[in-house]
Simulated assay, not measured.
Amino acid sequence: MVSTAEATWRVAVDRQACIGTGVCAGSAPEQIEIRDGKAAALRPEVGPSDALLDAAEMCPMAAITVTDVATGRVLAPEE
């Protein structure tokens, strides 16, 4: 786990870049869904989740960004 249990992460999906493969929703169904053929965050801010980091890393278009709210540090995808 990248952060402590009390951390808050921001999930952003670039729906223009998303091609709707569904890999993200399969990896992190509690945080991401496919809506109208594109990925969408179920909530804009969530607690830490390894599944969410995996989903962002697996996205073939790098359309999902996970950021630590407190620090502004991008946690995924890694550059």
Rank of each mutant, 00 (worst) to 15 (best):
A7C: 05
T8H: 13
T8I: 11
T8W: 13
W9Y: 02
W9N: 00
R10M: 12
V11E: 03
V11H: 03
A12E: 13
A12T: 15
V13I: 15
D14K: 13
R15Q: 15
R15V: 14
Q16H: 13
Q16M: 14
A17E: 11
A17W: 06
C18D: 14
C18L: 11
I19A: 11
I19C: 12
G20F: 03
G20R: 00
G22W: 00
G22K: 01
G22Y: 00
C24V: 10
G26P: 00
G26F: 05
G26S: 07
G26I: 07
S27G: 02
A28E: 02
A28S: 15
E30Y: 09
Q31I: 00
Q31C: 06
I32R: 02
I32V: 11
I32W: 00
I34A: 11
I34L: 15
I34W: 05
R35I: 13
D36G: 14
K38A: 14
K38N: 10
A40T: 11
A40Q: 14
A41S: 11
A41G: 10
L42N: 06
L42Y: 08
L42T: 05
R43G: 09
R43I: 08
V46Q: 05
V46Y: 03
V46M: 00
V46I: 14
G47T: 04
G47P: 01
P48G: 10
S49K: 01
S49W: 00
D50G: 02
A51Q: 11
L52G: 01
L53V: 14
L53W: 03
L53C: 08
D54W: 01
A55G: 04
A55Y: 03
A55Q: 05
A55V: 08
A56P: 01
E57R: 12
M58Q: 06
M58R: 06
M61Q: 15
A62D: 09
A62Q: 15
A63V: 08
A63Q: 06
A63N: 08
I64R: 01
T65D: 02
T65G: 05
